[in-house]
Design a protein around this nucleic acid. Structure first.
Length: 496
RNA sequence: GGGCCGCUAGCUCAAUUGGCAGAGCAACUGACUCUUAAUCAGUGGGUUGGGGGUUCGAUUCCCUCGCGGCUCACCA
């Protein structure tokens, strides 16, 4: 504890006074019999029975010999009516002089209605359950400071009701997703977070070290390669919900650790997966929000299937005016991109240029949209289209102008996979650090035969953003990653 | 990493051209037995993110460091 401020010192003094007079400020047991909401809703059928409630004290309205104060618990809140006649002089004095806003208490009393008709508890006994030493923030402005909201989420949850709702809905979305997949025969598994070779995406990994093994390990950037090994092993439908880690910049859409659901369905292709995504997201929205319509960043979004399906090429052409298929060579494409008023870095590859075009297209994809048929150079793990080997059987799904999922018919030819790893290795030699290292064991697994498979990755955080109308990914992550605060950074002019 | 913006009492926010750092809530003292943003009277509370500079004088101007937000870049 730092040097206590004025308000903390006052509360500490109360705590000590209570202890000195034999009142334990942090007793072990509570005797709660009812939730606040139950009493409020069923007041008229409860009759004359004493109930015991427990929760946090709100702002008191002190009338002298009567004090009104809200009691807030996990179910809602109820007004406590604390009057001299019922509570007694000692109890009332205890409330006024020893209890503070934010204290956690137990209130025993008779449910009743005040003259204004408000459901209340006529309190006959008050007991302290936990003394709060910090006062809660402003009673009606709540906590606004974004940095404190993220760093001290417990305070944010305490005083900003919408925040709790977002995380409750997040929990509903995830549990509904599990139920949805379990019901369809998918098996949930857990694969390693610490990996000797990371793969399954183009991203920078976090590096760590195992002491006993004296070995470098990486935090996974995807679950893909382990899940596909399970398909080889005969688990035909498999999924994992878990954290992936990418050592890259943050933004309102990017967090260094984020939650992804990856699933793989044997004997299915990307068309089957598309149907699954539509249906699953509708189900999740229905269960979490009670509706398949939602609002995100001021846009009304209708999640009802079927969703729009459009080849990547068409979508990009429509928005940017550039038809990349007409520019098979990098120079000509770069010129076309620049002509469309979009920045094209010198030395950018064709894949990067198309990516740049997609970045400009993405914000326009408000209603749920599948973009399909990605060029093979953008999709190292996807199977080629039989009708056009320059394209892959792949789609990405966009809702509210952000990408929430990526799927394809999985590459299961070990020779082709070997080839693509070798190309990436060559790329790596050339200095591109975002490529996947060669995973010999994975190729070995494919050599035993992996069924034709449709695979999917859903960014849970982003999906929750859309379904809860949260503008930033940090708003759907309970404890977003923040730079550690050094309490004493020393003289600033002395350091580098 | 670049650009822009921000950091003032426990919380939410003010402060004129560079001229005594303020309000509401919270806190403290008192009054009030049906209030619900209770009301009324009074009181205390500040290293203005840290450090340095310019100046008679800095919340304000300059430099620097820290933290955050947005954005661009990187990246799914």
């Amino acid at each position: 504890m730092q040097q206590p401020n004025e308000q903390q010192a006052l509360r500490l003094a109360k705590r000590e006074r209570l202890q000195a007079t034999g009142t334990e400020p942090y007793p072990s047991r509570a005797n709660r019999t009812h939730l606040a909401r139950d009493v409020v809703e069923r007041l008229d059928e409860m009759g004359d029975q004493h109930v015991v409630l427990a929760g946090r004290l709100g702002v008191p309205r002190d009338m002298g010999k009567t004090v009104f104060v809200d009691l807030i618990d996990g179910s809602g809140k109820i007004q406590l009516l604390c009057r001299l006649n019922t509570l007694g002089a000692e109890g009332l004095a205890f409330l006024k002089s020893d209890l503070d806003i934010g204290d956690i208490v137990e209130a025993t009393g008779m449910p009743m209605r005040t003259r204004t008709g408000e459901a209340s508890l006529d309190v006959s006994q008050l007991r302290l359950l936990a003394k709060a030493l910090n006062p809660p923030p402003d009673k009606w402005h709540g906590l606004q400071d974004v940095e404190t909201r993220y760093r001290q989420r417990y305070v944010d949850l305490l005083v900003n009701p919408g925040v709790r709702d977002v995380f409750l809905r997040r929990a509903k979305i995830v549990s509904a997703m599990r139920r949805y997949l379990d019901n369809r025969g998918f098996v949930e598994v857990e694969t390693p977070v610490l990996q000797p070779i990371y793969g399954g995406g183009a991203a920078q990994a976090f590096t760590t070290h195992h002491g006993a093994l004296d070995q470098t390990l990486y935090l996974r950037i995807a679950t893909e390669l382990y899940l596909k090994r399970l398909l080889v092993g005969g688990i035909e439908r498999v999924y994992e919900i878990g954290k992936d880690f990418r050592n890259e910049g943050t933004s309102t859409k990017h967090s260094p650790e984020f939650t992804q659901m990856e699933l793989y369905q044997s004997y299915a292709d990307y068309q089957d997966i598309m149907a699954l995504v539509e249906d699953m997201v509708c189900t999740l929205a229905q269960e979490a929000n009670g509706s398949t319509r939602t609002t995100f960043r001021g846009h009304d979004i209708d999640l009802t299937s079927p969703w729009s399906r459009q080849p990547l090429r068409e979508a990009i052409k429509q928005v940017t005016g550039v038809d990349y298929a007409l520019h098979p060579d990098t120079t000509s494409l770069a010129a076309a991109v620049r002509a469309a008023g979009i920045e094209a870095r010198p030395g950018a590859t064709r894949a990067q240029l198309i990516d740049e075009l997609l970045d400009n297209t993405e914000p326009t994809l408000i209603q749920p949209t599948f973009l399909t048929d990605y060029p093979v150079e953008l999709s190292p793990f996807a199977k080629r289209k039989p009708t056009d080997p320059t394209l892959t059987e792949r789609f990405e799904v966009f809702i509210g102008g952000i990408e929430v999922g990526n799927a394809f018919t999985e590459l299961n030819d070990p020779v082709d996979q070997d080839q693509r790893f070798r190309e990436q290795a060559a790329d790596r030699e050339a200095g591109n650090t975002d490529t996947n290292p060669y995973d010999e064991d994975f190729v070995n697994a494919l050599m035993y035969g992996m069924p034709p498979t449709g695979g999917l990755g859903i960014g849970i955080d982003r999906l929750v953003m859309v379904l809860t109308d949260s503008p930033s990914i940090r708003d759907v992550i309970l404890f977003p990653q923040m730079r550690t605060r050094t309490t004493d950074s020393g003289p600033a002019n002395g350091s580098s």
